[in-house]
Design a protein around this nucleic acid. Structure first.
Lengths: 229, 229
DNA sequence: ACCTGAACACCGTTCAAGT
DNA sequence: ACCTGAACACCGTTCAAGT
């Protein structure tokens, strides 16, 4: 509802030197808040109680300050959310083992990205409203693997974009499953689902999202290699 | 925050016979609201002013009733949203021309699904929290095309699931682009984007989401045909 | 410079009371 | 059966005032 311009308001916030200027110890009341503390508290709150629990008032309570205090460090709640998503997405690590075929390593690379977002479902939810910037080193690593696979370097960026979008989209759809009235979880892995059929005919179909992910990526890579030869 | 059980509360709402019992004309004050009217008003409000404008109070104002009145017809705002998404997703039409190769027709089928959600961005946004049921006839048509393409009937469901997830995920990621600080629209088609690069090196990369969609689907189908031969 | 206290304009939801 | 009026417990945000 209230619209604010990104850059302008950000510059009003002074991030770093709270502790140096106030000289109060962190953690207590009047503790010299920092942006980092606020983001960290937001993540803990969000991971613990879900994204709906991430309110300005609740966050302030967790930090033992008044809610208005947060507005000195951040321009708005949206600004906080953006920082949270940026922080989580910066934590993506895709160290793939140097051994194995390029294809296997690329599959691991993409699986690692999916796994990261599955570990942070609340951040994934926030990422819809506040899309993060792609970590550059992650993209670089993925493109290198594509080249190692035999993709012409000029096509690598385009191909990686396809893969990246597919993974992101997949994880989002996968997360939505938990909210779906038509899907119910099955088994203990957290990846098996049964799809309720409303009509009378046909058995309820069951599937595993792990397998679905694997075949999706497999088909894309097969397609890339087929059209490349 | 308030959790309610789906089936139980739905049954308390009496959908149809408002007009018959009250005998008042629709449209004016005390107009014998129906669920359909409420859903329709919600869609118009949402399409016109965005999903954030879809509030219980605003919806009531548009219908010229008090907000509490809506709670006789629906159990909660979530319940309204679910009905809205269900309605929009039921409107998907994928009449593909009978002419053309199976592959071309399948591509049109999937493109039609993407186009439908692009026409209803607010509903797409809602669909994340309230995933709709897949229209059965749409899935049937798609699977038939896969069989016509040469996919064994036993694999058709699984393959179509891959395609369906990919399209849904793609459209969601595509929609997020508009909110991204790192992407800015280019051109007049609404599908061209330039990706801002924060470092100094490298030219800003540009791409067209139409093309990206086409190659993604193309690669998946190539992969299916390659692994099938 | 950094934070409090109090206010403002909103939310979704409930419920007695009307007709 | 269907809707109003008023209340309740929340939101995000602003701003003078404190230190």
């Amino acid at each position: 509802m209230t619209r604010w311009t990104h850059d302008a308001d950000l510059s009003t916030a002074n991030p770093m030197k709270a502790e140096a200027t106030t000289g109060r110890r962190p953690g207590g009341r009047g503790a010299g808040l920092t942006r980092e503390q606020i983001v960290q508290a937001a993540i803990t709150l969000m991971d613990g109680e879900g994204v709906d629990a991430l309110t300005v008032r609740g966050l302030a309570r967790a930090l033992d300050v008044e809610s208005a205090a947060l507005y000195w460090h951040f321009a708005s709640k949206d600004d906080i959310c953006r920082a949270v998503v940026e922080e989580i997405s910066a934590q993506i690590r895709v160290e793939t083992s140097a051994r194995g075929t390029p294809r296997k390593r690329l599959e691991q690379h993409l699986a690692a990205i999916r796994a990261h977002w599955r570990r942070h479902p609340s951040a994934l939810e926030l990422s819809r409203r506040f899309p993060p910037s792609v970590a550059r080193d992650v993209a670089r690593a993925g493109m290198d693997l594509l080249v190692a696979l035999g993709i012409p370097p000029d096509d690598a960026l385009d191909r990686y974009r396809v893969l990246s979008w597919s993974v992101t989209g997949f994880v989002i759809v996968e997360q939505n499953l938990a909210r779906s009235v038509h899907h119910t979880p099955a088994g203990t892995t957290g990846t098996r689902w049964v799809l309720a059929i409303e009509g009378s005919e046909g058995a309820p179909s069951e599937f595993d999202s792990d397998e679905l992910f694997h075949t999706t990526i497999g088909l894309l890579l097969d397609g890339m290699l087929a059209s490349n030869s």
